[in-house]
């Protein structure tokens, strides 16, 4: 990694719900091309952090700068336009539509901004792009199936594929492997990470599974009770006493 200016700068982020402090003193810099793992026990503030960066929750105070642009105060839509996408812990897809239709609408929204939204959606160009994404995410065989009937694993792949079609510069994945079987998880992550590396996307992902963290990330952020208690390489983090006590526990 080159030591360039960070593309994501989070400063003194604080989020409270009444008397409950969900996040506090969050300071993070992320550089282009990094793959950052976010770990922590349930309720440690991981998803809250993702929700704040992507505009779903408004921080109580603090700042989030993306390439110099302030994100605090922007909603999910504007954050997506700025170039940050996300996937969801529970896949958020259109469950009565087919996989191909899901991807197509995602592509069309990303590519047909403004008055282009009033043009016919199924252009040859978008159809080619759609098929390309289907292939890269190994979704070809499910193309014409309705999401309702698909396994959680396929839905999560689709969920991520829909997030990347807008060609984001940063992608946040919220527990990509939750709900995916132990046998499938590496295959699944190989597909995802390979596709993302090809596109040079900077990735932050929330993960419970330490095997996944060790294998794919270049850096770890460990959350505990709304604060970041460790920001280091995965090897160091997994050996860190605090991380072992508060994040991994006796055996999470």
């Amino acid at each position: 990694m080159t030591e360039s200016k960070p593309i994501l700068e989070v400063r003194d982020l604080l989020k409270t719900f009444g008397a409950v402090v969900a996040a506090k003193d969050i300071n993070v810099d992320v550089r282009k091309g990094e793959i950052v793992g976010i770990i922590g026990a349930n309720g440690a503030g991981k998803t809250c952090f993702v929700n704040m960066v992507t505009g779903y929750l408004k921080p109580t105070s603090g700042s989030i700068a993306f390439d110099g642009v302030q994100l605090v105060g922007k909603g999910p839509r504007e954050v997506t336009h700025a170039g940050i996408s996300r996937s969801f812990q529970v896949s958020q897809v259109f469950h009565t539509m087919t996989v191909a239709e899901n991807l197509m609408i995602a592509l069309a929204i990303a590519k047909n901004r403004g008055f282009a939204a009033l043009r016919e959606m199924d252009s040859p160009d978008l159809l080619t792009r759609r098929d390309d994404v289907l292939t890269r995410y190994h979704l070809d065989s499910y193309k014409d199936m309705t999401v309702n009937v698909l396994s959680q694993g396929v839905r999560k792949l689709l969920d991520i594929a829909m997030a990347v079609v807008s060609e984001p510069r940063i992608l946040l994945l919220d527990e990509p492997t939750s709900g995916i079987s132990v046998e499938e998880k590496f295959g699944f992550m190989d597909v995802v990470i390979e596709a993302l590396r090809e596109d040079e996307v900077t990735v932050l992902f929330v993960e419970h599974d330490m095997e996944i963290v060790e294998r794919y990330v270049s850096r770890v952020l460990a959350f505990y009770q709304g604060e970041i208690i460790a920001d280091m390489s995965p090897k160091k983090a997994l050996a860190d006493a605090k991380v072992q006590e508060f994040v991994i526990g006796t055996r999470h």
Partner: peptide
């Protein structure tokens, strides 16, 4: 009929199925 084939016109079932996702895809 034409409207229903445009991008904005196709945003019917997606809105019914999942509004949050539509916003995250970048459409109001």
């Amino acid at each position: 009929n034409f409207y229903l084939k445009t991008t904005i016109g196709r945003l019917t079932t997606p809105i019914r199925d999942n509004e949050i996702r539509v916003e995250y895809l970048g459409f109001s």
